[in-house]
């Protein structure tokens, strides 16, 4: 049974690709056969984050247009041989994706025995974003604790309930999860940033994970290794927890509290 998971957000720059890369890497590390697909036609970036940018020969649009086979376009990850990347086209425009074409690729991946297909959605609510979510069984909505991101996420949640194949067929609601990124416990404690509870109160969904703001995320993208592989960084550990929850394990949320200050700092600040 193949499960299709869309990573989406509405707003750009909140960490969709970082999240798609880490979740798919985490699922593969646990032995599942995973394909991760970049739906951002014209602005391909998943390949860079996954570190396979120089191995892209054929892309998603080539497969849809029958210019190559699916097998030729799937890039096998160097760290896990059960993880495959399908890059977005960098030269076509976003109309190159069609619903039938995307549906066929997903069916073919399912027939090929993939356990999980992770769809990395582009920002916005146009065609690419629509197609990324259309076939999904579950959605991971990436949200920053910031007003515009929270509002856009709510808009996306509405679309997930109405503009997906499951909604149209009445197959039961798509599973929805929130994933908070760039979370700063220090700023939350100071009352400068929305906390987990605030975001949950507003959007009315449970959280799959809270990823703390971490230098590790930039380091990881610089080197093309999904941050989940950096077990030293808090973000990497938090993504590890999120993968466990995605697979149904119970895990306490971590890294929500600001580090305790020493006595001198408490008295004199800093």
């Amino acid at each position: 049974m193949t499960e299709i998971i869309v990573v989406t957000s509405g707003k750009g720059g909140v960490g969709k690709t970082t999240t798609a890369a880490s979740l798919s890497m985490g699922l593969a590390a646990r032995g599942h056969k995973v394909a991760v697909i970049d739906f951002d036609v014209g602005l391909r970036n998943l390949d860079l984050i996954m570190g396979c940018e120089r191995r892209v020969v054929y892309d998603f649009v080539n497969v849809i247009h029958g210019e190559c086979t699916l097998k030729q376009a799937l890039i096998k990850d160097k760290r896990h041989d059960n993880l495959y990347v399908l890059a977005a086209s960098q030269t076509r425009d976003k109309d190159a994706l069609t619903q039938e074409g995307v549906g066929k690729v997903l069916d073919d991946l399912a027939a090929d025995g993939f356990d999980y297909i992770v769809c990395d959605s582009p920002a916005g609510i146009e065609k690419g974003a629509h197609l990324a979510m259309y076939f999904a069984d579950r959605a991971v909505v990436v949200v920053n604790p910031e007003v515009s991101s929270v509002r856009d996420s709510d808009r996306i949640l509405g679309l997930l309930d109405s503009k997906t194949r499951r909604a149209e067929r009445g197959d039961g609601a798509i599973g929805k999860h929130l994933l908070l990124t760039r979370y700063s416990p220090v700023r939350v404690e100071a009352g400068e940033m929305l906390g987990v509870k605030d975001v949950v109160d507003i959007l009315g969904l449970d959280v799959l994970g809270v990823i703390p703001e971490s230098a590790g995320v930039l380091t990881a993208s610089n080197s093309g290794t999904p941050v989940i592989l950096d077990s030293e960084s808090l973000a990497g550990q938090a993504y590890g927890d999120a993968v466990a929850r995605l697979l149904g394990e119970e895990r306490e949320l971590r890294f929500l509290d600001a580090p305790k200050k020493g006595f001198l700092k408490r008295v004199f600040g800093g």
Partner: peptide, 28 residues
């Protein structure tokens, strides 16, 4: 901290953000 006590501290803005979001999200 003791020093914060003497500094001019701006009012916490997160609660304002939450209040505004609850209203606009409900309306939308």
């Amino acid at each position: 901290s003791l020093l914060d006590f003497f500094r001019n501290k701006p009012q916490a803005s997160a609660s304002l953000a939450k209040e505004r979001l609850l209203i606009i999200v409900a309306q939308e």
